Amino acid sequence: MNNKSILLVLTFATMLLGGCATKMQAVVPLDANMLKNKESKVGVIMSDVATPETFITGANCLLCYAAAAAANSSLDSHLKTIPVDDIKNLKAEITQLLLEKGVTAVALEGEIDVDKLKKTKSKELNIAPRDFSSYKANGINYLLVIEVTQVGAYRAYSSYVPTMDPVATFSGLAYIVDLSNNKYILYKPFNNRKASDLEWDEPPTFPGLTNSLYEVIATGKDAIKANLAL
């Protein structure tokens, strides 16, 4: 767990305590007719896939979080050694899948940092909160985005006390934006978690939890691809 992760957790906890709330985007099933249009061209891009780590929730004070982080430090160190190339291959795999389905698609260079895009002002239903229109410069009219938010292990706490064993996690968002109006024609979160089939606490390699992580990555990738059924 790095300093950025700790800051994110504490910021989220502060927002909850302060009564702040953001409207949740509902699932948007794929409008396949949009992609089947002969004029359609889809660009495929992913966010950065961070090094796997341990994600802790419920330890909402500084000392609580520090204690939880220390208790899971061996697991966290091991997770950071696990390669994520199989996730990064998603961009090429999804592009190929679209091409095989007769959709004109291209894998875009680089990664996307959605938080750096300008915010949109529209309150209309299913409009993305960020403006993706700059991607039209790539000669595309739809952008398929895979945002990976968690890879590694997830563990819930109540203050200092763990309320569950760690479970492997692979989660994020998959969506397609119409670049003419920033409207979602697909929006589907993915959240895959799996407990170890063996005793999880087996340092230094944690084989049970490691196997579970590989499994949730594979099933998560399959679920993302299933959303693109045309």
Results as ranks from 00 to 15, higher is better:
81 T>C: 06
45 I>T: 04
60 N>W: 01
63 L>K: 10
41 K>S: 13
48 D>G: 09
64 C>Y: 02
62 L>T: 11
86 D>Q: 14
58 G>F: 12
47 S>Y: 11
85 D>S: 12
79 L>Y: 12
64 C>G: 07
85 D>E: 08
50 A>D: 05
46 M>K: 05
47 S>W: 11
47 S>E: 07
34 M>E: 07
66 A>F: 01
83 P>Y: 01
81 T>Q: 12
57 T>F: 07
81 T>P: 01
89 N>V: 04
82 I>M: 06
63 L>S: 14
62 L>V: 10
60 N>R: 03
86 D>W: 07
68 A>H: 06
41 K>V: 15
37 N>E: 07
44 V>F: 00
67 A>W: 08
63 L>G: 02
71 A>I: 03
56 I>F: 08
48 D>Y: 08
65 Y>S: 02
92 A>C: 00
31 D>M: 09
74 S>Q: 12
44 V>K: 05
57 T>W: 07
52 P>S: 14
49 V>G: 09
62 L>G: 01
41 K>F: 15
90 L>H: 05
46 M>G: 03
44 V>W: 01
40 S>C: 13
43 G>Y: 13
32 A>K: 15
34 M>S: 04
78 H>R: 02
73 S>Y: 00
66 A>T: 10
35 L>E: 09
76 D>T: 13
88 K>D: 08
73 S>L: 03
37 N>K: 12
67 A>D: 04
45 I>W: 05
66 A>H: 09
59 A>L: 09
70 A>R: 12
56 I>H: 07
